[in-house]
């Protein structure tokens, strides 16, 4: 099947099997940040954006992206590093395997919610599993990042 879409702003036309999962397609196209952690839509590792909204790339069929824009962490390197620095300063990036999906969701949340409370944060990110950190360091990093963003906004 013919598909036309944008990955991180770059237009791609390809011929794919109709059952090609989006996750495998993205990895084939060099977006190695996209990870698989399960087969049951239960871990959040594979999170990418479709037209700016977070989705599970293991679950959404590739053909749904026809004519649309996919964003992966490869397309958000600056923001990833900006938030990632907070995570690293907590030592909470740990093994890192859950980080890309988690960070995609954190960055989406930062755009979507204005001043999320601790409960909002936990709720928004509840689909992102992490086995290393126990989530506390991630929470500290998210809070500091949101503070930092707020500070940056009120500066301009």
């Amino acid at each position: 099947m013919e598909i036309k879409l944008w990955i991180n702003g770059k237009k791609i036309t390809d011929n794919v099997e109709p059952d090609m999962p989006m996750l495998e397609f993205l990895r084939d196209k060099g977006c190695y940040s996209v990870k698989r952690g399960c087969e049951t839509s239960g871990c959040g590792l594979c999170t990418v954006w479709l037209d700016g909204k977070p989705i599970l790339s293991c679950t959404v069929p590739l053909m749904r992206a026809n004519g649309r824009h996919i964003t992966t962490l490869e397309g958000l390197q600056e923001e990833a590093a900006e938030f990632g620095a907070f995570l690293a300063d907590e030592g909470a990036e740990q093994c890192g395997f859950c980080n890309p999906g988690f960070i995609m969701n954190v960055l989406a949340m930062a755009r979507e919610l204005d001043a999320p409370s601790e409960e909002d944060i936990k709720e928004y990110l509840s689909g992102n599993l992490c086995r290393c950190t126990g989530y506390m360091g991630q929470l500290r990093a998210v809070k500091k990042y949101i503070e930092h963003k707020k500070g940056a906004r009120s500066d301009d």
Binding site: Y32, S33, L73, G84, A85, G96
Partner: peptide
């Protein structure tokens, strides 16, 4: 001291550093 992990920035930016990558 709370030194940052040496591989931290590669991990948080999703670099292809794992086995299957």
């Amino acid at each position: 001291k709370p030194v940052r992990k040496k591989d931290a920035m590669a991990l948080v930016t999703g670099k292809p550093v794992y086995c299957d990558d």
